[in-house]
Design a protein around this nucleic acid. Structure first.
Lengths: 246, 246
DNA sequence: TTATCATACTGGTCTGACCAAGATCAGACC
DNA sequence: GGTCTGATCTTGGTCAGACCAGTATGATAA
């Protein structure tokens, strides 16, 4: 049996993990399915229950499985939180990764906006419009403004109708929420940012409405670049009130 | 004790996990550090050793920690394999995610090539050139050709000097290796693909050498689009020998 | 001083047990 | 007959102690 074979070489934890992985990858274990009990799994694989628990716990943190107290273990649909956890840990140990993550976010979002131009429906447009309006309303508030900014960008990714892009984006956006907020705090220092924030987002919105991927992508990239420019100026203490070059 | 406090609310596994997470995120546990022994951890937290092992195993699959047999548990630098595992599982249960992952890969790679135009050094150029040469040499071999193709694209991402992009790309590229290979199998059906494969990669290479982000991005996107077109034709059985429209 | 070896440690695993609470089904009650 | 109740089985959650097999270290012998 190919299933048995895979579980023969390894021992202990690896054995159980490989056994379950195989079934999960092969599709014989689908989301919603309930696994056999830990004890039964242990006897079937010839290992002890603690070992089985290790494997189940491993699958749990990977978001593949959910252990329900006194109910059983069920297969779940993989979700975002895993990536979130990973990035959180990874970032904590490599602070310089933040700029890197930002690059990845730009990558995801620019691709997403291209897809959004093709796939977005009325609902998506409306969500974008609401987010856009919110940005205008909350332009003077750091917290609410940052949230509105975040929502707009998330709406773009959602409009791409790509699960993977959405997952990746949200896992990274979580780490960058403070960046949205801190950007808004710059508004006090740079009054020109108000028009930048409002106009840029509007132009992005319009490009999506026009279903013009190239223009949308370019506008979005420009938007990020200008944001970087503002942050750079703030860092070097260049507090003059002229707007960033466009 | 603030350390104790964080571990008070939860019980068992959560307790240990939270305890370790706190130290990991706070930075008091850095990559390279060796954790105290499982037994000691168990007594300090008032739990049994199997529970400690669950937590350590959880951190292991998250790539945060490495358990070395008879040596101890050490903190590691998070690496790719986690995302790889996750995507592998996720993909298995949502096959329609494959196209989605491809989109994410395009996103990463297009961003990477832009960065590569700015950051690539001589070493990167040389690696790209070698990969390009390899593509020409192995143009008639499905396996080696697919590998060469893969290497070229990976070289682009490496040249971006962005850890995060590299991590994301390699985790997704792993799932798409067969796509490289299957593309090469199309070469038999579409002789025009030979020039497509060679010329496209050369043009991409030249754009990076020229340090022209816009052109590089556009060329790369075009490259992907044409690849899609070939695959589409193969699906519908359109086996005519004309080259894909450019 | 050096080389060898005993010992204390480490992770890896097993056994068997207890607890608390959901799931189930038999039996009692209406 | 139908519904309700409660004993029992099963499930995850956990613990305690034990054994194995190598590693690391230090003490002892050369």
């Amino acid at each position: 049996m190919e299933l048995k074979r895979a579980a023969e070489g390894e021992k202990g934890f690896e054995k159980v993990f490989a056994f379950l992985r195989e079934r999960l990858l092969a599709g014989s274990l689908k989301p919603g399915d309930r696994l056999i009990s830990e004890r039964e799994l242990a006897t079937q694989l010839g290992v002890s229950r603690p070992i089985v628990r290790e494997a189940l716990r491993a699958l749990t943190v990977l978001g593949i499985v959910e252990i329900r107290d006194r109910i059983g273990t069920v297969v779940t649909r993989p979700d975002v939180s895993v990536l979130n956890d990973f990035f959180t840990f990874a970032l904590a140990q490599q602070a310089d990764m933040l700029d890197d993550v930002m690059q990845a976010r730009v990558a995801i979002e620019c691709q997403a906006i291209r897809l959004a131009c093709e796939r977005a429906n009325i609902t998506d447009f409306e969500r974008l419009q609401r987010a856009l309006a919110k940005i205008g309303e909350t332009i003077d508030e750091a917290d609410a403004g940052g949230m509105a900014d975040f929502d707009f960008h998330r709406a773009i990714v959602v409009a791409s109708h790509s699960e993977t892009l959405t997952v990746l984006h949200s896992s990274m956006a979580g780490l960058l929420t403070h960046s949205h907020r801190s950007r808004r705090e710059l508004v006090q220092a740079f009054p020109s940012m108000k028009t930048y924030l409002i106009d840029d987002h509007r132009r992005i919105f319009e490009a999506v409405i026009a279903r013009d991927p190239e223009r949308a992508d370019a506008t979005l990239r420009e938007h990020f670049a200008i944001g970087d420019e503002y942050r750079r100026r703030a860092l070097v203490g260049d507090m003059d009130k002229t707007s960033a070059s466009r």
